[in-house]
Design a binder for these strands. Sequence first.
RNA 1: GGAGAGGUUCCCGAGUGGUUAAAGGGAGCAGACUGUAAAUCUGCCGGCUCAGCCUUCGGAGGUUCGAAUCCUCCCCUCUCCA
Length: 411
Amino acid sequence: MKNVYDIFKERGFIEQATDENMLRELLAKPITCYIGFDPTAKSLHVGSLLPIMSLAHMQREGHRPIALLGSGTCLVGDPSGKDEIRPVMTREEIDSNAEGIKAQMSHFIDFTNGKALMLNNADWLVPLNYIDFLRDIGRHFSVNRMLGAESYRQRLESGLSFLEFNYMLLQAYDFWYLFKNYDCLLQMGGNDQWGNILAGADLTRRIEGKIIHALTFPLITTADGNKMGKTHRGAIWLDPELTSPYEYYQYWINTDDRDVRRFLSYFTFLPMHEIERLSRLKGEDLRKAKDVLAYEATKICHGQDAANKTRSAARQLFGQEVMEDSEAVPTYSMTSDELGEGIQAYILFKDSDLCATRSEARRLISQGGAYVNGERIPSFDTRVGPDDIQNNAILLRAGKKKYLRVCIQDS
RNA sequence: GGAGAGGUUCCCGAGUGGUUAAAGGGAGCAGACUGUAAAUCUGCCGGCUCAGCCUUCGGAGGUUCGAAUCCUCCCCUCUCCA
């Protein structure tokens, strides 16, 4: 069995670790490790993919991962990496978000038979008593030292509430709690969590006299300097309701050349020699590597079936295959009554959500970026009507990459 | 609580009575080029019934023929002091 530490290392997962040699030794035998996920939204997004993949790797190598839902800590709000105070969320919001995330996580990690655990820190944080907590836990923390932590230092400029200041103590408490009750010896997380994780290891050393470990992942940015998973249009979610498998696939296939190799090693389970081979491809051929990346990433998140469908849809739309089954292409439905004798193109582009406003649709069309069934639309008021229907649908295209099938149903 | 600075269109940031839907930059969109990549060039970039109209410059009032720009009150942020 390969040591996970080495797997992490060769795949570029490690930014910082407490002690490389001790960790490698520790990981030679099955251990329990954890990563916390904040239920700030009803779904995780691509930005959380690296931590999720790391837990999956741990499990594949025989370790027991714990995915910790931070419902309790989320009530406080983590100031790390945020430049302003987070809006306080209600219990209800957080709980319902946690439900969604739980379901999602199961696609990546097998939670059956105790092979992995899903816990929620609200279970032990909420019942805490303030005075007891201060006396038992708070006394181990030095404010002087906390203020030196990177995550707080940034916020000292723009404002940090006392509520948020306490976040570190709670996360430290989590780590200690999981060590105590689940024998958890390693906490992983994004590099912005380094300070929080160390605080937990420190606390445990003070209380228990035991050494436990921290490992952080690099903050991933794309070659053009954006945060992973953030697009102009918003986050790329793991929930198919929020980001369809088609869009998900498209996100990956549009990867910058410079990111292909890195992303293959982060976001697929392909062996490194295969990744090396793929990323050696040059020029146009590199698209083959992107295709593998998109396919594998979609498969891991949405399943083989969805991956096949979206890949086929992409190939049809982008011209390598004949159009026949377009199930996975984004669809907008309307009845033949609504279509009537025809609708002005700019209205159709707006109503189908290809454009946000009618003005935007007019602009798009007048700039020559709008197509119906592959034909460029000459003017904004061109009518799209029954004559344009092919296979019960009309294929719209905005710009080079955005496709939409308008599905016409009998009324 | 006291003193000062400030809140402008997605972001940064000009603008101190009319020529301002508001400079400039970034982001974004479209076209050309191309490999569903990058770079580059060109155009666009509040809304709408689109060469006209409507709604914007923290909020509410007021002055004025006319305000993002002046006055009043309120809200919020930052800096210094307590």
